Amino acid sequence: MLKTAISQYQQRVDHQLGHQIDALEDIEPKLKAAMKHGALIGGKRIRPFLVYAIGDMLKVPLESLDPCAAAIECIHAYSLIHDDLPAMDDDALRRGQPTVHIAYDEATAILAGDALQTMAFEILSKPIVGINAAQQIAMIATLAKASGYSGMCGGQSIDLNATDKQIDLQSLIQLHSLKTGALIVAAVELAIIAGKIDANEKQALIDFAKAIGLAFQVQDDILDITGSTEEIGKPQGSDLEANKSTYPQLLGLTGAQETAENLIQDALSALAKLPYNSQLIEEFARFIIERRL
């Protein structure tokens, strides 16, 4: 069930992304190609999956969710393009393929990331079936906050400044709650805005999103040690080589694995408070720490 849903939603958002990029004027074919390389390089499409799966659970038509899924993946793709740059993590591989600055050049990669970021908000600003103007403004504000200083960019800056330093667990949690968790929470929030739920149900879904956002990063840190380059799509041990603070470094491998499991249990407890059939979302929560990439 989960595997089929992930594949279907992945194909759906990839179609949306391809259509959005192909529809651009051919002002600069190289930049357009770099954007497509960065946006369609592969991956499980975790954030779009959450938009679709949570939205579907709340009885929101998929057509109303397509722009949200495409927009959040544009932001994620831009963040990865910039994250791979020499000034940041300096990675040559992403999902088993050359990163954008390797496949093209550094300046083109920066511009491709910039263009995908702005495209996200262009997508959300166009009319969306079944979504009113107030909802659209809320969606734009949600994605902007999660992407910027108070979210992903702030977390990335903390991460860069923490390199070659020993930070405590609370600081690491804050770092990843912003760098990785903010966009995952935003994916759930976008679906919530598109649907109609009460305050308690909304809080349960936000608690779920925060837990799986952290669990996702803990598992990433674990895979950096236990996974192969082929499995994880980037050089194995790259975080250790870059002397980054990670959960296994602070807690040990077993401690990190226990932390990931505890976070998933927190996520499942939050879902149990909802009056919906959340089986698919529960399966997804388990997938977060069982995945090999």
Rank of each mutant, 00 (worst) to 15 (best):
L223E: 08
E261P: 05
A115C: 09
L178C: 08
Y78L: 08
P98N: 07
D239S: 06
I46E: 04
S147F: 12
L251Q: 09
L183V: 04
L268I: 08
V13F: 00
I128Y: 01
M35A: 01
S125M: 10
L40T: 07
E28L: 14
S278C: 10
F216M: 05
A144K: 09
K32Q: 12
Y78G: 01
V129E: 15
Q219F: 08
A194R: 02
I46L: 15
H82C: 00
L268T: 00
L172G: 04
D164Y: 14
Q16F: 09
L280T: 10
A191N: 07
T163E: 13
L172I: 05
L240R: 07
K30I: 10
T259G: 12
S125K: 13
I197L: 14
A267S: 07
I128N: 03
Q279K: 11
S79I: 09
L24M: 13
E230T: 13
E231C: 05
F284Q: 03
D224H: 04
L160K: 06
S79W: 02
Y104C: 11
D22S: 11
A33F: 08
G96L: 10
G43N: 09
G113V: 10
L274F: 08
P61L: 00
E28D: 12
C74T: 11
L85R: 00
Y52L: 01
A92G: 07
L160I: 14
G42K: 06
Q156A: 14
L274H: 05
G18R: 11
D224K: 07
Q11Y: 09
M119E: 11
K59Q: 14
I206D: 09
I137E: 14
A120L: 08
P98G: 06
E261D: 15
A34K: 06
M119C: 04
C74H: 08
Q265L: 11
A92M: 13
D90H: 13
T180G: 01
D239Y: 07
E73C: 06
P67K: 07
G38M: 04
A256P: 01
L31I: 14
Q135P: 07
G55F: 03
N277P: 00
A33N: 14
L143I: 10
Q20S: 13
F121D: 05
A39H: 02
N200T: 12
A144C: 10
A39C: 11
T246F: 08
G233A: 11
S64L: 04
A115I: 02
V60C: 03
A71Q: 02
I21C: 05
